[in-house]
């Protein structure tokens, strides 16, 4: 009995001390966005963003925990304090910056237009009167909505939009270029292709979103991202996940 109490106390002490030494940051991830963040065949959440934040955690001295959360509502969960940060290929936009804070950018992204392999479409302007799909609440979907005469169609996951494009229910999909590349060159390499990279005028960056005013987490994240960005590890990850 005595032994048990000592053991329990020792365990408590260990947990307590590690908590004191290292802050745990819980990241919400919508793991449906290959190659940035997705679930691999071993049911692990993996991808460029995951590797990046794991490295950042090591550099800045915090523990990174990844939690798979559906995209739609992911920011509502952040506001409600269900997790500390959203690391899910979140493009930094003015609108989003009004309601949440962003870390230093960690990835530069553009929007790509994916169409059927035999399509002659060159830009969104060629798709007037047709349905174009994107994931709900993404910058890709906002680009479709902004395009004149195109009928936007929102999906819960970008993969569903790709499947609908594959069977011909919609004419094109707009999403982040690394994701587009992954689908058009891997999964659907026989049926789909990237038509163009859309010029939205502004350069788009991914950042990690935190609840507005959460300076503690933000500082840790920035510290980590900055130190990782100075190393050669970024090139290594680029090679591993994107330009394979």
């Amino acid at each position: 009995m005595f032994k048990r109490i000592v053991l329990t106390l020792a365990m408590l002490f260990c947990v307590g001390s590690s908590a004191m030494a290292e802050k745990t940051i819980i990241f919400a991830v919508d793991a449906t966005w290959p190659p940035m963040e997705f679930v691999n065949s071993d049911k692990q959440v993996v991808g460029y963003s995951i590797d990046y934040m794991t490295a950042a955690a090591k550099a800045a001295g915090f523990t990174a925990v990844f939690k798979n959360v559906a995209w739609d509502g992911i920011f509502a969960g952040l506001a409600a304090g269900k997790y500390d940060a959203v690391c899910s290929s979140v493009s930094i936009t003015e609108k989003r910056q009004k309601v949440m804070d962003f870390s230093t950018p960690y990835f530069k992204v553009r929007q790509a237009l994916i169409v059927a392999k035999d399509s002659h479409v060159k830009s969104l302007a060629d798709l007037k009167g047709q349905k174009v799909g994107g994931q709900i609440g993404t910058t890709g979907y906002f680009a479709i909505k902004a395009a004149e005469g195109v009928e936007p169609k929102s999906y819960d996951e970008v993969g569903l939009a790709m499947e609908d494009l594959n069977v011909g229910r919609i004419a094109a999909v707009v999403c982040d270029d690394p994701v587009a590349a992954n689908y058009a060159m891997d999964q659907y390499k026989d049926t789909l292709k990237i038509a163009t990279v859309i010029e939205t005028g502004e350069v788009e960056y991914y950042g990690v979103a935190v609840k507005k005013g959460n300076k503690e987490v933000l500082d840790l994240l920035n510290k980590g991202i900055e130190s990782v960005s100075k190393t050669g590890y970024v090139q290594e990850m680029q090679h591993k996940w994107i330009s394979q």
Binding site: D72, G73, F75, R96, G133, G137, K153, S154, D156
Partner: peptide, 19 residues
């Protein structure tokens, strides 16, 4: 992806964050 009441609402919320 059928644009019923709920999807329209979700689209609105995803852009405005007014969940």
């Amino acid at each position: 992806a059928v644009s019923d009441i709920l999807r329209r609402g979700r689209e609105f919320a995803s852009e405005s964050f007014l969940y």
